[in-house]
Design a protein around this nucleic acid. Sequence first.
DNA 1: CTCCTTATTTGTAATTATTCTAAAGTAATA
DNA 2: TATTACTTTAGAATAATTACAAATAAGGAG
Lengths: 145, 145
Amino acid sequence: MVLINRKDLIDLFHENGYKVTPQRLAIFECIMGRRDHPSASEIHSELKREYPTISQATIYNTLHILRDIGAIQELGFEDGKTRFDPDTSIHVNLVCTACGKITDFTDEDLVKAWIGMVEKTAKKTVGQRLDLYYKCTHCSRMVSE
Amino acid sequence: MVLINRKDLIDLFHENGYKVTPQRLAIFECIMGRRDHPSASEIHSELKREYPTISQATIYNTLHILRDIGAIQELGFEDGKTRFDPDTSIHVNLVCTACGKITDFTDEDLVKAWIGMVEKTAKKTVGQRLDLYYKCTHCSRMVSE
DNA sequence: CTCCTTATTTGTAATTATTCTAAAGTAATA
DNA sequence: TATTACTTTAGAATAATTACAAATAAGGAG
């Protein structure tokens, strides 16, 4: 699990020539604070309480910057929504195909095999995404009832 | 590499209570025929030559059915587009982050580690997605020039 | 083979996530 | 503190996907 703290984030912004604004910090801390890989609109809804005038454009702009500087991982889904994960390390996203709940999972053997595979491809990696799709116990119950 | 042939697909449709139509077969064969994980609109454009009146709704409807019966894998991306892979086995999608080109890659050790990881999670898997993001040689050249 | 029922296709409108734009605001530097 | 460029904002524009109702066709019964 690789999670960036506030100070490192501020440094990252400066290193990359971006200014530090309260909105940018709040957006990152929103993603860090919740463990559920929120979408842009979920982040917007949550932050409107603290910043009533925060706009969608700021949310999207900041999310793209955070992705570009490697502070978060962006996960596009088939429902058209994109969700954001503050853990940029090699890990598995356990995704319930019914309710959409996402849980992170790390497995050392898999990480080793992944790194080995990357070496075999001889590619300069800029990121990865490992999803496991399943039905969570709650959603399995729903169907069988 | 798990690729379904035409006869198996027809059986799959019948087993799942779906009718077999020329459009459905053509859409599947379009995805099978090209090796580039096309998007819905790319499939639509290609098939309009053979079926000038084919509608977007049919494309989307069929793609969702193909996904539901396990004939294809659906890959949502951050740019809002969804692309379709006729290989539903455990394999890596090598994705160029600049031009979007996708190449499939299979690594036996990684497959073993993945299966082991799935057992550890004790989840009933319904699918998976393994993406490796990189810049292809062509796009790397573009940047350095 | 023909008819009938029902699923499917079609064309278009509606929806929704994301991007664009230009004016107003603010972080960072001197 | 003043300046300047970057950032935020609000709202319009864009583009992928979905919804809908009428027309069409697959597949089973006779």
